[in-house]
Design a protein around this nucleic acid. Sequence first.
DNA 1: ATAAAACTACCGACCGGTCGGTAGGGAAAA
DNA 2: TTTTCCCTACCGACCGGTCGGTAGTTTTAT
Lengths: 193, 193
Amino acid sequence: MQRSDILQAAAQAFRQKGYHAASMQDIADAVQLQKASLYHHVEGKQDILLAILDHALDLLITDLEEVVATDLPPDQKLRQAMHAYVGRLTQDADLAAVLLLEYRSLEPKARAQHIRRRDHYERIWRDLIKEGVQANIFQPVDETVATFALLGVQNWMITWFKLGGPLTAQQLADRFCDLFLHGLLTSEGHSKQ
Amino acid sequence: MQRSDILQAAAQAFRQKGYHAASMQDIADAVQLQKASLYHHVEGKQDILLAILDHALDLLITDLEEVVATDLPPDQKLRQAMHAYVGRLTQDADLAAVLLLEYRSLEPKARAQHIRRRDHYERIWRDLIKEGVQANIFQPVDETVATFALLGVQNWMITWFKLGGPLTAQQLADRFCDLFLHGLLTSEGHSKQ
DNA sequence: ATAAAACTACCGACCGGTCGGTAGGGAAAA
DNA sequence: TTTTCCCTACCGACCGGTCGGTAGTTTTAT
């Protein structure tokens, strides 16, 4: 039995029931341990949540920094970043769902610290958009709004996407990216504007 | 003291703490009643949650059906729908946040029923997109993906948007809509494709 | 007078967490 | 080589506290 096994089981439980509704007993059952034995590996329930959130954010930051370090043009960087992000959200779905939906359950101190790291991650995305705008590849949009829109589309995916459905994660990332790059309107739609 | 006062206070508590972390005592304090007195107006905690979700969905469905009943062109219908949606999400923020984030806490039976109604609501959006595609105003995108993208951007807004910030809700709806209709790429960006 | 609305007091269940204790394997001491 | 020791991993039992909910009574308003 390893600490990481407990974190994984906890992530699954937190995702399914939510942090407060999932009990330490649920987690213990999932790893076939007595509840008391969990405290040999972790300090408490909050400790588990914090470890999950830190780990999830670590993965995402690593992924994204790999992409922005390339010398691809901005629109292709964006596509790569979306592929990586959607990939993580589907591959490590439990971790991702807890990151996006359960960070509210952190106690104020830890939450403030976590939010600072999350903002740093969002700034990397915003800089990616800004790079495209300054290169005149992207239109002069409000970078903050565009970033939240981009992240919103992808984040909301975790609430409805099911592996094994009609689309793979990579196909979905491509369609999201196409939508963002080209928009909905046809030339006919444009001419009517 | 009216039932609706309790529902409003409960929505606020559920939004701030989450359904399970918010206690009946919290709700009672907010309406300056003893906890036991709540049970004169509502059947229980689940009853409160269900009433909030039903009410929130009622408002959204009414808003959206008003828009689709007009004879505006599809792209303008979309803009109107987004204005109405973003308006609700910011005006009735407590209701909306509970609708989008706390429906998971419904017991299985009620949840299944609620999800059916929510799917009906999403189908109205999808039909709106489909109408634009068939009129050749929108590109032949996958209507389901486009709908989830559209709703995702707007739904995620409730996690970061603050009234009194640099943008009003209506300005934000417009920027979202522009992004969706025209996309990010400039003509320079297109020429490089 | 009477019914609605609020109160006080209480319940069983479950929560996160702690306690003392133990099985067993490897290191240290004889 | 054998015995002592210690450490990791785990367990059953239990703690104080909080939860949603109920019973019975008093206050308030018509």
